[in-house]
Amino acid sequence: MNGPTPAEISAQLITFCAAGMLVFQLLLIVQRMLLTNIRLFALQSFLLTSIAGIIAYFHNATHVYLVAALTLIGKVVFLPWLLDRQVRRIGISQEIEPLLNAPASMLLCGGLTLLSYIVARPFTALERLGNNTLGIAMSLVLTGFFLMFNRRKAITQVLALLTVENGVMLAAVALTTYGMPLVVELGIFFDVVVAVMVLGILVYRIRDSFASMDTSKLNQLKG
């Protein structure tokens, strides 16, 4: 019997999940309903959790289970819930017209993805898991940056920041089997949660003071 080895299966699964993360990222870029955006982010984070779970299972790394659990609790359940509640409370459900329209954004992000693959190419020999996971991670970072500049609602900018974070975590997985040391993972997790809470406070204050959470109105300071 020459079935695929466990290592091959895990590599295939990880590639599949990573590709799924990129798909959700692209959907985020064209989607304008805020609640849907939050769900898309939760799904993307769920795939990241799955990748961590797959690694933990196939490589018998117990501490990665903990990382998976933290990601699940933090990025799949808690943060989406927090953002969801905020959007409902503020009562704005849709993003206004972004700077670039959907087809143009799509084209640009295709270009960014290509660029990431080119940048990641020399390092494919170092990738331990999956095919081109590093390329996908870099394109998540770049398209996350694009999302940040393309949108004007404060909440969407927070989401963009979180997808960049997802990309960085994917890069950590792609390059170093077991991810970062546990203490660092814990620190990152804690930071992300606190960051979103602090940003949430600011969003409320901006909303109170400007009667809007449109960040293009934040333009009084110059020079």
């Binding site: 940040m148 404060a154 900018q157 920041l161 960051a195 602090v198 940003l199 600011l202 204050r205 901006i206 003071s209 400007f210 960040t215 934040l218 333009n219 009084q220 300071l221």
Partner: peptide
């Protein structure tokens, strides 16, 4: 103030 919220938002983002 509106300006300080703007500054804080730029700073954190």
């Amino acid at each position: 103030r509106q300006t300080s919220l703007e500054a804080a938002w730029k700073y954190i983002i």
